[in-house]
């Protein structure tokens, strides 16, 4: 009896050590890459503080990616990655079959929006040529004067009617006349890669949230050959978070 009890408890210990070993093997054999990220949400009572990390690759335009056919929740998605100038990896292409060669992340569709919309807006800048932007939402018409507020990545954060006191709170501002507005409807998929949660000590979630707006949060991921990733570290302003 005593021996059997010891064996059963040993089994529990081995299972726990197995989880640690599994992770260690993954980290040791996987390739380490950096992804640019933005945390979203605050806390979970059971697990203490943690941040939910969103990536550019978390929402996918299925039409633009050229993925035809029926895409549903829980379908697999493969996102091929390419190294950008700043050392982080960005989405190069997306597909629903395993890519041949190259680095890629394997994800799972969590939600499909068949009728998502985006806008394609062309602005004639004062003293410059036309520039095209893709804001999430745009309520102005052709011929109107507007100011677009851009974030570091060149994405439109807000669009304002040009007035004397209208100015962007941060980032680059583009002022000009709207020359074309196109509303495009497309199929969008939300994708989860298993690298969306990072656990923190109590109270650190808020600091992460502020970092999201500044967009200087990078995630180090140990990438396996089958495209599964595991977070090994978080870098805020280039410094590793313990």
């Amino acid at each position: 009896m005593r021996l059997k009890f010891a064996v059963v408890i040993l089994l529990q210990i081995l299972l726990l050590i197995g989880i640690i070993g599994y992770r260690a093997y993954w980290v040791a054999t996987g390739e380490h890459i950096l992804l640019q990220s933005a945390p979203v949400d605050p806390r979970d009572l059971f697990r203490g503080d943690y941040v939910t990390l969103a990536y550019d690759l978390s929402t996918i335009d299925l039409d633009r990616a050229g993925i035809r056919g029926d895409i549903r929740r829980n379908d697999r998605i493969y996102t091929v990655l390419q190294k950008a100038g700043d050392g982080t990896y960005r989405m190069a292409s997306v597909g629903n079959t395993v890519p041949v060669g190259g680095k890629f992340l394997q994800g799972r569709v969590t939600r499909v929006n068949e009728r998502a919309t985006r806008f394609e807006v062309t602005i004639r800048e004062d003293g410059a040529g036309d520039r095209t932007f893709e804001p999430r939402w745009f309520s102005f018409h052709e011929g109107e004067r507007v100011i677009l507020c851009l974030d570091r990545g060149g994405r439109v954060q807000a669009s304002l009617r040009e007035k004397e006191d209208a100015r962007c709170r941060s980032g680059e501002a583009v002022a000009g006349t709207v020359t074309a507005v196109k509303k495009i409807s497309f199929r969008q998929a939300a994708v989860e890669y298993g690298i969306e949660h990072f656990f923190l000590e109590e109270g650190k979630g808020k600091a992460m949230e502020r970092a999201r707006n500044a967009r200087d949060l990078r995630v180090e991921v140990a990438l396996r050959e089958d495209g599964r990733g595991l977070i090994t570290g978080l870098f805020l302003d280039g410094r590793r978070i313990p």
Binding site: L15, L16, I19, I20, G48, Y50, G194, F199, L230, T232
Partner: peptide, 14 residues
């Protein structure tokens, strides 16, 4: 222990 180890090592795979 399972959940804490998953938390310490950020294992959220499945």
């Amino acid at each position: 222990g399972i959940f804490l180890i998953a938390q310490i090592y950020n294992i959220t795979v499945h």
